[in-house]
Nucleic acid binder design. Structure first.
Length: 590
RNA sequence: GGGGUUGUAGUUCAGCCGGUUAGAACGCCGGCCUGUCACGCCGGAGGCCGCGGGUUCGAGUCCCGUCAACCCCGCCA
C-alpha cells in the first residue's frame, strides 16, 4: 500500500474540469456523472460531470461499437467511466462558455459504473426546483455546481481559520457534546441518560463554560470549530445546529481578543476570496442604536436615523408618544419623493408595524418650506430640524417607545435600501459594536437577564453598581462583530473573580445556593487560580454565507433542516421503538 | 405562539365568473436524425388538483379546518 501525498488517486487521470487544448492527443481516463446526453443519430455527445467541471465525450463513426452500445443505454446521472483520447474540437464546434470547451474526449471504451433511477430533478434541470424537493433529495441538490462551490468555500474558510489560529499558538481542543443543561439562554436539546434514570444531558448551546475552564487549566489559547445546538425557531440565517469558530485566550483584554478575531476575518477573506478587508469600524452599542436603530447595522449604505428634539411639538401623534416617555426619529431617503408611491409607503408602514410601531409619518420635500404628506402638518421649524434634508427627499418619521422606533426604523432602513438598490454588491463592511449593557429587563420573567451571558465581565468601573438597583447602567466588556447587517461574532472579557461572578448571578436573581447548584464547578474553577481571560465565538455558517454571497444559511450547510427543524432527507426527528424509550426511562405523553 | 406567501403530472407552472374529457414546458418511455452544447423532429405513458370537512344540481376554483415548504414577528444568554 503506497501513501498518496498529492495528485492522482485511483484510476482517474484527470477530473472533468481539467482538460485543455494542450492535452490534445493524450489518452485519459475520466469517471463521473452523465450530466447531459445529446444524441444526433450518427454522432452522440455525453457531458461528463464531477465537482470540478464538465467534459464533453463525443462518439462518432470512429468510436468502437461496444462504446456505442453503452452510450445508447446510458441515462442522465448514471455514473460512467470513459477511456479515450483528447481531441481538439473543430473551430466551429468550440464552446467558449465552457472551460473545457476547446476539447472533447473520443472514447475507446465506455463503461457503466452505476445506474440511476429516474430522479425527481437533475443538476442540469433548468427550471428552479422547490426547496422542499431539493431538501428531500439533498444528494442530488449537492451535485449542483453552486452548492459544490459553497461546500468548497466552507472547507477553505475552515482550513484558513485553522492555519491562522494554529500559527498564533491556539490549541484545537474538543469539548463534550453531552453536557449539562444551564439556565439562561436558549432552549436546550436534551438527551436522556440510560444509566441515571430521570437525569438528562443537554447538547451545548456553546462550549462557553468548558473553554473558560480550559483557561483555568492553563491552556492559554484555545479554539474549536464546533457544533452548537439551540432549540429555538429558525430563520433564513439560523439553524438549530450550527457551527462556531470558538476562541478563548488567557491574559487577554478586550483589544487583544478583538485583534485576533479581526485578524482571523482578514485572513479568511484573503485566503478564500483574495479580498483585503477595509479597517473595521468600532462603534458603541449606544451609537449603533442611535444612528441605525439596531445593534448589527449594515454599513454598506447611508440612510442613518436622526433622533428628533420635538419636545415642543403640538403634533398629536408625536406629542402622545413623547408624553408617554417615547422618542421620535427620522430617516431621510434622498431623492425618493418622486418615485415612492402611496402603495410603497403603505407597504413600508406595514413593514414597520411588525416591530410594534403604530405607523409611519412621511413627508415629501418640495422646494421651499412646502412638504406634502402627514409631515406637512408639522410645524415648519421642527421639520427644519431634521438634518440633511433637500428638496426631492422623502422623510419618514416614527414616534413611540424607543424600542419600537429603533427596531421599526432600523429594520425598515435595511428594507428600503434593498428595495431602492442602495446596497452595493461584493462589499464587506465589518464593524465592532462594543460597550453593551450587561443586563436587560425581562418583562415576562420580571427580572434582569444577561444581554450576552452571565459570565461576561462588567466594565471594572461599573462593578460597584451591582446590587445597588442601578443594573440598567452597567456596561460590559462585550463586543460583537457585525458585517453587512449580520452579527458574525460575539464575545466578551470574562469574569475571572468568583466574587464578581456571584454578584452577577445575584443581579440575575440567582442566589448563592442556586448558583452553587448550577455552576458550582465553574465557581470552584474560578477560585482555583483563574487567569484573566476573554474570548469570542464566530458564527461560521454566516461567515460562509457572506463569502459565498448567499442570504440563506441552508445554502452553506450540507444537510440543513427545514423551518420546522426537520431533516427531510433522513426523516428526522422520528418516533423510536417503545423498547428504546423504556431503556431510557422515558415515556411519550403524545 | 402569531402573521404572510405557496401547494395541480416526476419537475416548474397555467387553469377565466363554479360547468361537461384538468393543460403546457421540461423530464420519462419508444422511434428518427453525422457536430450537438437549453440539439431537433414524430409518437406515447403519466393526475388523491396537499389532506379533511362544508356550501352547491355541480368544486382544482368558494368557505372552514388541518398539514407541509418558505419569509417575518415573538424566541434565539
Amino acid at each position: 500500500m503506497s501513501e498518496h501525498v498529492e495528485g492522482r488517486i485511483g484510476r482517474r487521470t484527470h477530473n472533468a474540469g481539467a482538460l485543455r487544448a494542450g492535452n490534445a492527443g493524450e489518452t485519459v481516463l475520466l469517471q463521473g456523472w452523465v450530466h447531459a446526453i445529446r444524441d444526433a443519430g450518427g454522432v452522440m455527445f455525453i457531458l461528463l460531470r464531477d465537482r470540478h467541471g464538465l467534459t464533453q465525450v463525443t462518439l462518432d463513426e470512429t468510436a468502437p461499437e461496444a462504446a456505442w452500445e453503452v452510450a445508447r443505454r446510458v441515462r442522465l446521472e448514471w455514473v460512467v467511466e470513459v477511456e479515450g483520447v483528447v481531441a481538439r474540437r473543430a473551430e466551429a464546434a468550440v464552446n467558449p462558455d465552457m472551460p473545457t470547451g476547446e476539447i472533447e474526449v473520443r472514447p475507446t471504451r465506455l463503461a457503466v459504473l452505476s445506474a440511476s433511477r429516474p430522479l425527481p430533478f437533475t443538476p442540469g434541470t433548468q427550471a428552479p426546483v422547490s426547496e422542499q424537493v431539493r431538501l428531500q433529495h439533498r444528494y442530488i441538490d449537492l451535485r449542483r455546481p453552486e452548492l459544490q462551490r459553497n461546500l468548497l468555500i466552507r472547507h477553505r474558510a475552515a482550513q484558513a481559520a485553522r492555519r491562522y489560529l494554529d500559527r498564533l499558538g491556539f490549541l484545537e481542543i474538543e469539548t463534550p457534546v453531552l453536557t449539562r443543561s444551564t439556565p439562561e439562554g436558549a432552549r436546550d436539546y436534551l438527551v436522556p441518560s440510560r444509566v441515571h434514570p430521570g437525569e438528562w444531558f443537554a447538547l451545548p448551546q456553546s462550549p462557553q463554560i468548558f473553554k473558560q475552564i480550559l483557561m483555568v487549566a492553563g491552556c492559554d489559547r484555545y479554539f474549536q470549530i464546533v457544533k452548537c445546538f439551540r432549540d429555538e425557531d429558525l430563520r433564513a440565517d439560523r439553524q438549530p445546529e450550527f457551527t462556531q469558530i470558538d476562541i478563548e485566550m488567557s491574559f487577554a483584554d478586550r483589544d487583544a481578543v478583538m485583534a485576533v478575531a479581526e485578524g482571523l476575518a482578514r485572513h479568511v477573506w484573503r485566503e478564500v476570496l483574495g479580498v483585503e478587508l477595509e479597517p473595521f469600524a468600532v462603534l458603541s452599542y449606544a451609537e449603533a442604536m442611535r444612528r441605525f436603530g439596531v445593534d448589527k447595522p449594515d454599513l454598506r449604505f447611508g440612510l442613518e436615523l436622526a433622533e428628533l428634539d420635538w419636545g415642543a411639538t403640538g403634533f398629536r401623534v408625536v406629542r402622545g408618544a413623547l408624553d408617554a416617555g417615547g422618542i421620535a426619529k427620522a430617516m431621510v431617503v434622498p431623492g425618493a419623493a418622486g418615485d415612492t408611491s402611496r402603495k410603497t409607503l403603505d407597504a413600508w408602514t406595514e413593514f414597520a408595524r411588525r416591530y410594534g410601531l403604530g405607523g409611519l409619518l412621511w413627508g415629501k420635500v418640495k422646494e421651499g418650506d412646502a412638504w406634502s404628506g402627514p409631515l406637512g402638518k408639522v410645524e415648519a421649524e421642527l421639520r427644519a430640524g431634521i438634518p440633511g434634508v433637500s428638496p426631492g427627499d422623502l422623510v419618514l418619521v416614527a414616534a413611540g417607545p424607543a424600542a419600537a422606533v429603533n427596531a421599526g426604523l432600523g429594520n425598515l432602513r435595511n428594507h428600503v435600501a434593498r428595495e431602492r438598490g442602495l446596497v452595493p454588491e461584493g462589499v464587506f463592511r465589518f464593524a465592532w459594536v462594543v460597550d453593551f449593557p450587561a443586563f436587560e429587563w425581562d418583562e415576562e420573567a420580571g427580572r434582569w437577564v444577561a444581554l450576552h451571558h452571565p459570565f461576561t465581565a462588567p466594565k471594572p468601573e461599573h462593578v460597584a453598581l451591582l446590587g445597588t438597583g442601578r443594573e440598567a447602567e452597567v456596561l460590559s466588556d462585550a463586543y460583537d462583530l457585525v458585517c453587512n447587517g449580520y452579527e458574525v461574532a460575539g464575545g466578551s472579557v470574562r469574569i475571572h473573580d468568583g466574587e464578581v461572578q456571584r454578584k452577577v448571578f445575584a443581579a440575575l436573581g440567582m442566589d448563592a445556593e442556586e448558583a452553587r447548584a448550577r455552576f458550582g464547578f465553574l465557581l470552584d474553577a474560578l477560585a482555583s487560580g483563574a487567569p484573566p481571560h476573554g474570548g469570542i465565538a464566530a458564527g461560521f455558517d454566516r461567515w460562509v454565507m457572506l463569502l459565498a454571497g448567499t442570504d440563506n444559511i441552508r445554502d452553506v450547510i450540507a444537510f440543513p433542516k427545514t423551518t420546522t427543524a426537520q431533516d427531510l432527507m433522513a426523516g428526522a426527528p422520528a418516533p423510536v421503538d417503545p423498547e428504546q424509550l423504556a431503556e431510557l426511562h422515558v415515556r411519550n405523553t403524545v
